[in-house]
Design a protein around this nucleic acid. Sequence first.
DNA 1: GACCCCGAGTCTCGTGACGAAACGCACTCG
DNA 2: CGAGTGCGTTTCGTCACGAGACTCGGGGTC
Lengths: 180, 180
Amino acid sequence: MLGSDYGGQVCASARALEVVGQRWTLLILRDLFLGFVRFDDLVDSLGVTRSVLARRLSHLEEHRLISRELYQEHPERYEYRITAKGAELLDVLARLLEWGETYYPHPDGPTRLLQHTGCGGAVRSLLTCTSCGDHLGPADVTALPGPARAGMSHPPTSEQGPGLRHLHGPRTGVETTDEP
Amino acid sequence: MLGSDYGGQVCASARALEVVGQRWTLLILRDLFLGFVRFDDLVDSLGVTRSVLARRLSHLEEHRLISRELYQEHPERYEYRITAKGAELLDVLARLLEWGETYYPHPDGPTRLLQHTGCGGAVRSLLTCTSCGDHLGPADVTALPGPARAGMSHPPTSEQGPGLRHLHGPRTGVETTDEP
DNA sequence: GACCCCGAGTCTCGTGACGAAACGCACTCG
DNA sequence: CGAGTGCGTTTCGTCACGAGACTCGGGGTC
């Protein structure tokens, strides 16, 4: 499953998902961040098949989200490091982690915490307005077509345009059906 | 289910990806946010197969990330709305969008912009320290095992622990190999 | 040298998810 | 009555994945 081609899509999130949207890819980056940097460590930690892992690693390297570093010659052995480009996806993982902890919590409590290395505080990924600096909820955000999208497809049944107006207020709690 | 099983993983991001990690799922949520809320609109907008779309929608509804709303009786017709639970993944999409625009830009410029509905400013997803309030880069963050992970697997080759110490400084530019 | 161990992939094979496109259904409209 | 609409479902071939054996280069021990 999870091929990587999303056809003629113009939206940048589709292009991002063509690179990191395949099965295991994001989890591999998470593990690299956690310090699992060698092939067999990744296999053990993730439970991914060796063949799939090899494919993903070379794909990630091709796109320069990771780099291979020699850590031993005779037998040549490489470990994998996240590049800056790859590291910028950490926010995505952080948000996914928060979301998972919220709606599918582990019975014994959180499994991972992110900490600000400097001050030791907890780290969250927040939607932030670069103009007024406020932290926003999903309902405070409107999507606009950018320049590259002049006259392209827009929602047909425009009785509800872009946005989430049926959810009201920031960090809304409506229908917050937490479930096991 | 549906090939989305990430085995015995304890980490919450794996659990999150079991729900939204399948092909098309995140893009479906994006389109719902943009206002494509009916079946055929989604098919046209995404280019996804009808059968796959139907599977994804019912999976998303099962997990209460979306809800079906009757918009016409005789023939019963439903449209799909994002719930608050689903809307909280908007951050993930926002970050993915930014990342895609940065590293795989469309020749004609950005394709989507996110705007603060209140003040009109641009919206970004930022790692934020809840204690000191700073905005952080990936290299400023350390991952800690939480309570549910007492004595579980940690990186074996601990010569590099969790974190990204080989990238230095916030929002580092090292190796920022932008490429076509 | 004989033997086993290690880490990092590669190969083979069976299953199952996906893509394409036709089909079914319930209802409206002319 | 026949055509059109909106929403799925079915069928079928292909391709990606999971499981696990296998290869390869080299080290350690005796």
